[in-house]
C-alpha cells in the first residue's frame, strides 16, 4: 500500500479500532447476535422442519427444511447486525452522546467518520456470518462448499444495510421512533421467503416480495448455500450495492448538514 493510500484508509481504521476497543466490554452482544439465528434455526428449522418435511421443487433431489431456512436466518442476522450498529448506535452517538463533535475537531472529516462506522458494521456482519457458518457446519447443515461465498455475500448485505442505517440515524427524532423501524423490519423478516419459498404467494405478491432488500439478501446467500451459483446472484448483489450506495450518498449529505453547521 502506498503512503497516500494508507493516509486515506487510516481514519477508517481508527474508527474500527475505536469500536473494537468498545467491543472488549460488550463482546457478549456479538455472541447474542450469533445465538439468535441459531435459536431460530433450532426451533423453526429443525422443530418445524419435522412438521414440514422436504420442500419439493427447489432443486434435485429435494431440499431439507433446515437447509432452506439457515441461509435466510443468516441473511437476516447480517442485516440486523449492520443496521443496528449504524441506525441505533450511530443515532446514539450522534444525538445522545454527541461524540462525533469532538472527533470532528480533529483532522477527521464527516465522510471519514461515516465510512469508518460503515466499515465496522460490515466487519460485524462478516463476524456474525463466520460464527453462524461455523455452528451450522457443526450441525451438519452445510449442503455445498459454495456456502463460503456467503462471507462475501454477508459483506455486501452488511454494506447495504449499514448505509440504510446511516440514513435512518439522520432521520430519527428520538428513541420511540425506532418502533417504526421495527414495524418495517419485522414484516420484512417474516415475509421475505425466510420460512417458506416464494411459490406460496400469488404472483402479484411475489413481485412485491422480490423488491424487498431482504429478499435479495436471502437470495444472495441461499443460492450458494444450496449449491446453486448463477448469474442471478450478481443481480441480487448489484441491487444491494446500488441501494446501499444511494442510501450512503443521501445519508452523508444529511449527516454533513447536521454536523457541520
Amino acid at each position: 500500500m502506498t503512503t497516500a493510500r494508507y493516509e486515506r484508509a487510516r481514519p477508517v481504521a481508527v474508527m474500527i479500532e475505536r469500536n473494537l476497543r468498545i467491543y472488549r466490554h460488550t463482546w457478549a452482544l456479538l455472541l447474542a447476535e450469533i445465538l439468535e439465528p441459531i435459536l431460530y434455526l433450532g426451533s423453526i428449522g429443525l422443530g418445524v422442519g419435522v412438521l414440514v418435511g422436504h420442500l419439493p421443487g427447489l432443486g434435485a433431489p429435494s431440499v431439507g427444511y433446515p437447509e432452506f431456512v439457515a441461509p435466510a436466518l443468516l441473511a437476516t442476522a447480517a442485516m440486523n447486525g449492520a443496521l443496528n450498529e449504524t441506525a441505533f448506535l450511530m443515532y446514539n452517538r450522534l444525538a445522545v452522546e454527541r461524540i462525533y463533535q469532538p472527533i470532528l475537531a480533529t483532522p477527521m472529516s464527516v465522510g471519514e467518520v461515516a465510512v469508518g462506522e460503515i466499515a465496522w458494521a460490515v466487519l460485524r456482519s462478516v463476524m456474525i456470518t463466520v460464527g453462524f457458518l461455523g455452528v451450522i457446519a457443526v450441525f451438519g447443515l452445510v449442503a455445498s462448499p459454495w456456502v463460503l461465498l456467503g462471507v462475501l455475500g454477508a459483506a455486501v448485505i452488511g454494506f447495504c444495510f449499514a448505509c440504510v442505517g446511516l440514513l435512518v440515524a439522520t432521520w430519527v427524532r428520538g428513541f420511540p421512533d425506532f418502533q417504526f423501524v421495527q414495524l418495517v423490519m419485522l414484516p420484512m423478516f417474516l415475509f421475505a421467503t425466510t420460512f417458506y419459498p416464494l411459490g406460496v404467494y400469488p404472483r402479484p405478491v411475489q413481485v412485491a416480495v422480490e423488491c424487498l432488500p431482504l429478499y435479495q439478501a436471502i437470495q444472495l446467500l441461499r443460492g450458494p448455500a444450496l449449491g446453486q451459483v448463477d448469474a442471478a446472484l450478481l443481480l441480487s448483489a448489484g441491487y444491494l450495492l446500488v441501494l446501499g450506495g444511494l442510501a450512503l450518498h443521501w445519508g452523508l449529505r444529511r449527516l454533513r448538514r447536521i454536523l457541520s453547521v
Binding site: 475505536r18 466490554h25 452522546e97 454527541r98 469532538p102 475537531a105
Partner: peptide
C-alpha cells in the same frame, strides 16, 4: 494543530 475543549466535555462514555 488545534486543541479543542467543547462546552460539555463530550468524552467517549464507552471507553
Amino acid at each position: 494543530r488545534i486543541g479543542s475543549v467543547p462546552q460539555d466535555d463530550l468524552l467517549d462514555p464507552e471507553l
